[in-house]
Structures are given as structure tokens and as C-alpha cells.
Computed example of a mutant assay.
Amino acid sequence: MITTFTTFTLPQTITLEQASEIFQSTAPKYRSVPGLVRKVYVLSEDGRTAGGVYLWNSRADAEALYTDAWRAFVKDKYGTDPVVTYFNSPVVVDNVAGQIITAPHAP
């Protein structure tokens, strides 16, 4: 499994309420993305940085989303270019499902 952090510095500060409205408007786009397990929208406490934390089945699944069109969508929506950072996620604790998930390649 792969976790990606996407971040972008906003051209101006937004409130948590504004962020919630914006994020709710884009959330449906992610409901059926192949290989996406979970997406968590984030906003820094100062309201200057936004982004998302994504859990993917594979890096290939993640890379399939982060296309030039996706980057253009983010720039158009938020007025700034996103930064995407990849992390391996060999173990995930899911307290809602009551599971510890181990990626297939991890022992």
C-alpha cells in the first residue's frame, strides 16, 4: 500500500468552514477512483495550507490520479500547484473496522 500527502499553499487564508464547503464540493470525484482506499482532506491550523492524505492499493493507482489534468484542476480550484509526496504503508491500523491491515509485500 502507498500513502500520498498532497499539499498546496493557498494564495490567501481560508477558514475551516470555507475549506469544508470546498472539500465537500470535490469529495464526490474521489468516490470511485480505482485503487483509492481512503482520502482525508486537511487544512493547516493557520488556514494557509490545504491538501489531502490518500491511502492507495499501489503506487500505480496513485500515479493514475496525479495526471496533468488533476494538477490543472487543483491549480484552477485553489490557485496554486500541488506537491505530491509518496510513502510506503506496510501496516495500517483501522480502528473503525477493528483491523490491522498488512500490505501483501510485508511479512
Rank of each mutant, 00 (worst) to 15 (best):
Pro28Gln: 01
Asn88His: 11
Leu16Met: 05
Val42Trp: 07
Ile22Thr: 10
Gln12Asp: 13
Lys77Ala: 11
Ala97Pro: 00
Ile22Tyr: 08
Trp56Ala: 02
Ile101Asn: 04
Asp61Arg: 02
Pro104Val: 00
Gly35Gln: 00
Asp68Pro: 10
Arg38Thr: 09
Ala103Val: 00
Thr6Arg: 05
Ser44Asn: 06
Gly79Arg: 02
Thr67Phe: 03
Asn57Cys: 02
Ile2Asn: 04
Asp94Thr: 01
Trp70Ser: 06
Asn88Asp: 15
Thr3His: 07
Asp46Pro: 09
Tyr41Lys: 00
Phe87Pro: 05
Gln24Thr: 10
Gln24Met: 11
Asp81Leu: 11
Val92Phe: 13
Gly98Pro: 03
Ala50Ile: 08
Phe73Gln: 13
Lys39Ser: 08
Glu63Val: 04
Pro104His: 03
Met1Tyr: 03
Arg71Lys: 15
Asp46Gly: 10
Glu17Val: 09
Val37Glu: 09
Thr102Met: 10
Phe23Tyr: 15
Glu63Gln: 14
Lys77Gln: 13
Val74His: 08
Thr67Val: 01
Arg31Val: 04
Pro104Gln: 08
Trp56Ser: 07
Val93Met: 07
Leu10Asn: 07
Pro107Cys: 01
Tyr30Asn: 00
Val93His: 01
Val42Ile: 15
Thr6Glu: 14
Val91Asn: 01
Thr80Leu: 07
Asn57Leu: 07
Asp46His: 03
Ile2Arg: 04
Ala69Thr: 12
Pro28Glu: 01
Pro90Arg: 01
Phe87Lys: 04
Thr4Gln: 13
Thr13Tyr: 00
Trp70Ala: 10
Lys75Ile: 02
Val91Pro: 02
Gly52Lys: 04
Phe5Asn: 11
Pro34Gly: 00
Pro28Val: 01
Thr3Cys: 09
Gly51Arg: 05
Arg38Gln: 14
Tyr78Cys: 04
Val96Thr: 10
Trp70Met: 11
Tyr66Asn: 10
Val96Asp: 06
Asp61Phe: 01
Val74Lys: 05
Tyr54Ala: 10
Pro28Thr: 02
Asp76Ser: 15
Ser44His: 09
Asn88Thr: 15
Leu10Phe: 12
Tyr86Ala: 06
Phe73Glu: 14
Phe5Glu: 11
Ser32Lys: 09
Arg59Phe: 10
Leu16Pro: 05
Ala60Gln: 14
Ser89Thr: 15
Val33Met: 00
Pro11Ala: 03
Thr15Phe: 08
Ile100Ala: 07
Asp81His: 06
Gln99Ser: 06
Phe23Ala: 02
Glu63Gly: 04
Tyr66Ala: 07
Val93Ile: 12
Ile101Arg: 03
Pro34Met: 02
Glu17Asp: 15
Phe87Thr: 09
Thr4Pro: 12
Ala50Asn: 04
Val92Arg: 15
Ile2Thr: 01
Val93Ser: 04
Gly98Trp: 01
Ala97Met: 05
Ala69Val: 12
Thr49His: 08
Glu45Leu: 13
Val53Ala: 09
Thr26Met: 08
Phe73His: 12
Thr49Cys: 11
Ser20Trp: 07
Ala19Tyr: 10
Tyr41Gly: 11
Thr49Arg: 13
Lys39Arg: 15
Thr85Gly: 06
Val33Pro: 03
Thr13Gly: 01
Tyr66Cys: 07
Val40Ala: 14
Ser58His: 04
Ile100Cys: 05
Glu45Arg: 13
Arg48Ala: 14
Ala97Asn: 07
Val91Met: 03
Thr13Pro: 08
Arg31Ala: 14
Pro90Met: 01
Phe8Asn: 06
Thr13Glu: 11
